[in-house]
Design a protein around this nucleic acid. Sequence first.
DNA 1: AATACCTATCGTAGATATACGATTGTTTCA
DNA 2: TGAAACAATCGTATATCTACGATAGGTATT
Lengths: 115, 115
Amino acid sequence: MAVPLKVPPACAPFADEEPDLRPVEGREADEELSILAKALGHPARVQIMRLLVRRNACICGDIVDELPLAQSTVSQHLKVLKEAGLIRGEIDGPRVGYCVEPRVLRRLKALVGSL
Amino acid sequence: MAVPLKVPPACAPFADEEPDLRPVEGREADEELSILAKALGHPARVQIMRLLVRRNACICGDIVDELPLAQSTVSQHLKVLKEAGLIRGEIDGPRVGYCVEPRVLRRLKALVGSL
DNA sequence: AATACCTATCGTAGATATACGATTGTTTCA
DNA sequence: TGAAACAATCGTATATCTACGATAGGTATT
């Protein structure tokens, strides 16, 4: 228990410019792209992604306020984005702060760019 | 019936490098991105897109041969991509030649890139 | 400890998507 | 004209998605 393994401050996506070595084509890449695209396949989820990209991070409640949807519905959309890997949620006291997963977003751009 | 209005040769996407002036953000852009993403939200459709990009054009039958799906199912996937605007189908005698719609594909890349 | 606040999950109803076989409608070839 | 070839559409069964209200669970505040 020497070094406490300092965790970076929640949603500060520490400059991870490590290149993604996985191929952008082939069966696995196709599957991956379809999963990511499907997650973006709803206007509310695109809107959420934009909110998170703009503010770099966002409290769940803020997102609910911005969208014309019930809280439970927004929570469901957040879950879809989270399961696709596009966002991450960090418990911060009584609330949950969401932020984009830069690696995955970059991966998505690479996959789309390969078309 | 004077000038026969020469149609360009089927799927030769004549160098249309005209820039797309529509914004990449806002309600309309979000809706557009979600529609395009949804169309790519299935591995078979990603595979179809790749086939079309590679060969620049493709006969429907060829696509059926490449995918482990029934002819009717492939036809349905083609319809989804067509309705999203990502591909175009041109009747060529008894068969139908498909090709990507470069403008829309570029638009998709721009929208994803804006995230 | 009790309350208030915030978010996730459950249950559910209606809509949409996915897959297939069968059928229909063209177009070409014999 | 008839037959063969190709692709779209129809009909259908199953599965997934979408939306909501209601409920549960966890954290701060009183």
